[in-house]
Every structure is written in C-alpha cells, then in structure tokens.
C-alpha cells in the first residue's frame, strides 16, 4: 500500500517541475516553492483518502495533479497580512 504514496509523491514533484515552481527555499516568505507545501499536502491528502475510501491508481493521479496547483496559488488562497500604517 506504500507504493501509492510514493507514486503520488513522484507525480506531484514532476508536475510541479513542469509548471515551474521556484526551487529556492525562503523561510520567511508566504509564496510556495517546489518542496514546502507540496510534499506535506500530498501526504496529508493521501492519508485522508486512505482513511475514508481505499487507495487505487485514479486517486493517486488526481492528488498528484491537484497538490502542485494548490502549492502554486497558496499565497492567493491564504494571503499574509502586513500591519503597516
């Protein structure tokens, strides 16, 4: 069953490399990069799917495509607030 987790992680990294997420890690910025929210979002969504339903190939591909898109627009969904003024 651990094969599907690894497959989904590989698909998400390849898709994230294709849609050009940045490679550099900046720890005090709100924008996502290739590794930070992508790996955790993929593992968490696969665990939720594993608890609710059963894992198969279709769910693995769907989660692998969905999580880099979430990582690319993460600063639009959850914007940071600046207290200036």
């Amino acid at each position: 069953m651990i094969f599907y987790y690894i497959l989904s992680l590989a698909i998400s990294l390849v898709v994230g490399f294709i849609i050009r997420l940045p490679l550099k890690i900046d720890t005090n910025s709100f924008k996502g990069n290739l590794f930070f929210p992508t790996v955790f979002v993929t593992l968490g969504l696969m665990a939720i799917v594993d608890i609710l339903f059963n894992l198969n190939l279709v769910f693995s591909i769907i989660v692998g495509i969905l999580s880099p898109l979430f990582s690319k627009y993460v600063d639009v969904i959850f914007p940071g607030v600046s207290y200036g003024g």
Binding site: P37, F40, V41, L43, G44, L45, A47, I48
Partner: peptide, 9 residues
C-alpha cells in the same frame, strides 16, 4: 500525516 495538514492550515 493528517495532523500535519491541519497544522499547516
């Protein structure tokens, strides 16, 4: 793994 996602949100 679910707890990691909840903590991120």
């Amino acid at each position: 793994l679910v707890a990691t996602l909840l903590i991120f949100i």
